[in-house]
Design a protein around this nucleic acid. Sequence first.
DNA 1: GCCGTTTTCGGCCCGACTGTTTTCAGTCG
Length: 583
Amino acid sequence: MPVHNADIAAVFAEIADLLEIEDANPFRIRAYRNAARVLKDFPQDIRALLARSGGNLPKLPGIGEDLAAKIREIVATGGCALLQRLRGELPSSITDLLKIPGLGPKRVRALYHDLGVQTPAQLLRAARENRVTRLPGFGDKTQQNILQAIEAHAGGAGRFKLSVASQYAEGLIAYLRRIRGVRQVEVAGSFRRMRETVGDLDLLVAAADAGPVMQRFIQYEEVKTTLASGSTRASIVLRCGLQVDLRVVDPANYGAALLYFTGSKAHNIVLRRMAQERGLKLNEYGVFRGAKMVAGATEESVYAALDLPYIAPELREDRGEIEAAHAGRLPRLVERASLRGDLHSHTTASDGHDSLRAMALAARAAGLEYLAITEHSRRLAMTRGLDPRRLAKQCDEIDRLNAELSGITLLKGIEVDVLADGSLDLPDSALAQLDIVIAAVHSKFDLPRDRQTERILRALGNPYVTLLAHPTGRLIGERKAYDVDMLRIVREAKQRGCYLELDAQPDRLDLTDVHCQMAKQEGVLVAIDSDAHSTFDFANLRYGIGQARRGWLEAGDVLNTRPLAKLRPLLRRRAVPPRRRKA
DNA sequence: GCCGTTTTCGGCCCGACTGTTTTCAGTCG
């Protein structure tokens, strides 16, 4: 059973949970949580790394001798003696109780020791039988909140996709802006960091008088329940199940508050420590030397007080951005305005909703110079995928439209299916006439890792393939990524002169941020594509940009920031098989 | 458990809100 980075991270996360319930040293607990986070995001396969280096792990932040030994143990045995010991002392299922809002380690321990409660179901029964209130520190209200939280949890609120949360955020922002005295409104939190899903919305308002804002907020028409409501802070749950936290601050503190509520938590902790080292204190109101505030009105002022340049929200994950900022090596992140074209789109010829002409005009209106039309191929029958004859016909239509339209150039392409054995769904003769060939996996998601990887490597070996579409095939919250060795794929792409796609559909966002970083490190360009199936879908490019920025990509790392004249040679190089390229 | 221009010990981020208490522990972000 191969051990992946996520498996090691899961072991450390469970150890942290169990240690917390045992009331262990909080800094020891933090060390395990920190290690879990570092490993989960680590772009290279630790197991492979250990195998190559003869058991030597490179120095990772927050992982010292002891944790490195545990990583080796987990990779070698699939388990961890410490976790086994902890599970002997506490049932493993008890960590589920920690996920219930309102329950922390202290209460979970009391529930287990005094009532024998090990699972949410048992807790539900205990609360219904009125046994929870008998515990010291638990009152009627707490029992009631536990009941509600478990029932809400069963309803499966979970995390919301960024694009979905965005719809609710827009209505709320407009509502809050209309309140008298409100100067600024912004969504902070993971939403501002452009994470692919968000657990809640963190709204920040600048206003001299918080009272009216707090009052109006809990009166918002979509509020289902109010979880908390103080003088400057409140939490509500919308009817859709999305939790929204509001904080109102004075404009003088807005920057510090925005920084604080944007997070990530890990980023904030590092900043606070830096403040301490400089004899300062950083909190959500500002940077203080003693009682004197030295910064806080803007985020820039706070970073400057810590001798740092401004760090973009998408980078604030404590994945090296603070070190990079300190060394003056922050990336100049790609922006939506840098995109000159889009290399993946569909029309009514396959499963798109709009005509070739409509898509061309919409792309132009979205500020793009070129758009590749890349229908599905015949294998994907449910999308009415193209065969060579229909593909040739579409190429003729594209020629006619290109002659007619100005300000936009259509490129001839195909999103050709990669068959189970890695061969392609269309013959080379059909691919040879195109500007761009995108290879895509739409079937056989469950092949074992080696076969899935070999399949994709073989597809990249076809001399006409230029781009690998949505490389892991995941659908956020619906379908897991298929099991592939992404590093091998990235390196093969480099070798073959191919590129990887970041599909900007909010359901896909595939490549992930971590894989973007991997591609950059290996020197492989990424294409940020809408995969548009309608004229509206070009708006999704912003989510792709967000993901790319989280992956540290600069304009130069993105294929389709090139103007058409510079793009064509990059595509053409692949379109000519090496053996025919003689003088 | 990690870490080090305070270096092998003694630190380790900070404040709001709730509920159950009568001054604060627990939880959350």
